[in-house]
Design a protein around this nucleic acid. Structure first.
Length: 596
RNA sequence: CGGGGCGUAGCGCAGUCCGGUUUAGCGCACCUGCUUUGGGAGCAGGGGGUCGCCGGUUCGAAUCCGGCCGCCCCGACCA
């Protein structure tokens, strides 16, 4: 019958390749730079609609749904309640938190037909607080966690790399509410474990938590879950000896001290020597024996900022941002001159602290007799000592960790690696609940503000990350937990017995609840194998005359590389066993869930 | 937002400098038929394009000029 190919779809999650929309192709798309991007397009997982915006075809959607299911199971396991908040939100909610003003153009704002200002949610703190403040009134309802798997939109200045960095994406975002910081910290650890389980079950046990900046989210403690990969956009400091791992934004390196007896300041002629290298070479000292000055336009109070750091190090602007409570913007020469400093020969000494905020790195405090500028063209000072020469200035950490720096936790060495952020967790504190008036009544009858945490995972980015970490030159090698199908059937040199056997195998797998894709086309083996590789299904079963004459089927494992033959008789049970074993191998040991 | 590259069939590309046998072409993919079948088969036939868009120059524009748009990469930016 002409409609018969559709029939199987109604009853089970299997697919005949001859009917599947979306072709796989041989040539690598020109716009793909990353392997994951190339395979997602070549394998017919997705198609681009606009910059950073994609449609998913069946294989891509199935991978996403598998990941979502897995996340759901782990969120539910730690007591999460699934909800669904809207993508489109009214401006008023974001006015309440203040983020309508503070967030830049990555927040897509628009007006509806009545002229009402609306926005596309890029995260849902405001929405979740607005929802929960009306539902939660008593301490007896706390703690709780709600989560959703929902579309987010961020109008990124530059999306790139296929699904690694997009504008529209699906994200699992979870929000927990607590009556104490201790309880937040307890649950934060529960989430931390749940995240490790999620990534392990998705086939990426190597994803590791790293300490990270809280950025505009506020709060004190945050971790990013990072897959180390050269194509990643984050730089991570990794200790070679202990477990310390931190995003560059917060990574701390060991401070090497170079104590000497302080010598008197000495002004020296340094004609045309502006850079650290020039000055150090001219005076014949190491760069670490100098102090470098970097100017920023203003701190939160409008003062010019002078950042002082040892000459061999760089200033980390994320750390500066924390000190000055605003984003650092490099100062212009005119701004520098206006406070009496001289670019290239600058020193904090003698500047008016009413106009200039001086922040000094701890490394400067840990060295004596440094060379620094004199605020006079062609002159520097020798023997600058922070404690003696700038007595009011306390040292803080504004240094960018350099590759090879010492670890602060052990005797080891830090190395800088690139990584993809596939998830993050934040201890938010009371920022949103306070701003948006969420409160509950405690046991003593007193009004209290809940303490909040939030926890995100990007679904598509995780899928792409798995490809980055698990592929060969032919295509993805999906872990069975998130593979679009569990079994891929190839029928070669199709004649009646082969067709009947393959059809029956497909029907049997379907009846057993196994997710199978069946290449029922009369395509050559080369085509079938190449396209099977692109779909990356872990268990491949090949029905061919060669083995069928012996009553056998051939198998090839894309996830492990094993291959061989199995008897047709009992094949379903064999395959079920493989699936069970493969899923079990991915599952970490069970642990206590939150409410137990 | 700055720098660079690119827009010709679903994908990969040639043609653009130097305007005119180009009715705009090649490979893959697609359709029909036959032959094939263990790693992207062969033969024959066929379909698919407003050459990114708008305007200009010219007898004539994929090709030259102006404007715009889109995509990719690097940087800036970034829960």
């Amino acid at each position: 019958m002409w409609f018969s190919p559709l029939t199987p779809h109604w009853s089970c999650s299997t697919m005949r390749l001859s009917q599947m929309i979306g072709s796989r192709y041989k040539e690598r798309p020109a716009e793909a730079v990353l392997d994951s991007h190339a395979f997602l397009l070549r394998g017919g997982y997705m198609r681009q609609v606009a910059n950073g915006i994609y449609s998913l075809l069946t294989p891509g959607l199935r991978v996403a749904q598998k990941i979502e299911t897995l996340i759901r199971e782990e969120m539910n396991r730690i007591g999460g309640q699934e909800v669904l908040m809207p993508l489109v939100l009214p401006r008023e909610l974001w006015d309440e938190s203040g983020r309508y003003e503070t967030i830049g153009p990555e927040l897509l704002r628009f007006a509806d037909r009545t002229g009402h200002d609306m926005l596309l949610g890029m995260t849902h703190e405001e929405a979740v607080v607005a929802l929960c403040r009306n539902e939660v009134k008593s301490h007896a309802q706390l703690p709780f966690m709600v989560y959703q798997i929902q579309t987010k939109f961020r109008d990124e200045a530059r999306s790139r790399g296929g699904l690694i960095r997009v504008r529209e994406f699906t994200m699992k975002d979870a929000y927990s509410f607590h009556t104490s910081q201790e309880d937040l910290e307890r649950y934060y650890d529960v989430c931390y474990d749940a995240y490790n389980r999620i990534f392990a079950r998705a086939g990426l046990p190597e994803v590791t938590p790293v300490e990270s900046d809280t950025g505009m989210m506020g709060g004190q403690i945050a971790h990013e879950f990072i897959l180390l990969a050269d194509c990643g956009e984050d730089t991570i400091a990794v200790c070679g000896s202990c477990s310390y791992r931190a995003n560059m934004e917060v990574a701390e390196g060991r401070i090497e001290a170079y104590p000497e007896d302080a010598l008197p300041l000495e002004k020296i002629h340094t004609p045309g020597m502006k850079t650290i290298e020039e000055v150090a070479g001219f005076i014949d000292v190491e760069p670490r024996q100098t102090a470098k000055v970097v100017f920023y336009q203003n701190d939160a109070d409008g003062k010019l900022v002078l950042a002082l750091i040892r000459g061999d190090l760089e200033v980390n602007e994320a750390k500066v941002a924390k000190q000055i409570k605003t984003l650092p913007v490099p100062a212009t020469e005119a701004q520098i001159e206006a406070v009496g400093a001289v670019a290239g020969f600058a020193t904090p000494m003698g500047l008016d602290t009413a106009k200039v905020r001086i922040i000094a790195d701890e490394t400067v405090a840990a060295s004596n007799n440094l060379v620094c500028g004199a605020n006079e063209v062609d002159y520097h000072y020798k023997n600058f000592n922070l404690g003696r020469d700038l007595p009011g200035v306390a040292a803080c950490d504004i240094a960018e960790v350099a590759d090879g720096a010492g670890c602060t936790r052990c005797a080891g060495t830090l190395n800088l690696r690139r990584g993809i952020e596939v998830g993050n967790i934040f201890q938010l504190g009371t920022k949103y609940c306070t701003a948006m008036n969420m409160s509950y009544t405690d046991a003593a009858g007193k009004m209290q503000t809940p303490i909040m945490g939030c926890y995100g995972i990007g679904v598509g980015r995780l899928a792409a990350s798995v490809i980055e970490a698990r592929h060969d030159k032919f295509g993805p090698q999906w872990p069975i937990s998130i593979a679009p199908w569990q079994v891929h059937i190839n029928a070669l040199k199709v004649d009646d017995p082969i067709r009947e056997t393959a059809d029956a195998l497909y029907a049997d797998l379907c009846a057993a609840g196994i997710e199978a894709i069946y290449d029922d086309r009369n395509a050559s083996p080369g085509v079938q194998f190449a396209e099977a590789d692109l779909l990356g299904v872990p268990i491949r079963i090949i029905v061919s005359k060669r083995n069928l004459d012996n009553g056998e089927l051939e198998f090839k494992r894309r996830d492990t590389g094993e291959k061989g033959t199995i008897p047709r008789e009992g094949a379903i049970a064999t395959i079920q066993g493989w699936i069970h074993d493969a899923l079990t191998a991915l599952k970490p040991g069970t642990r206590e869930a939150i409410n137990s």
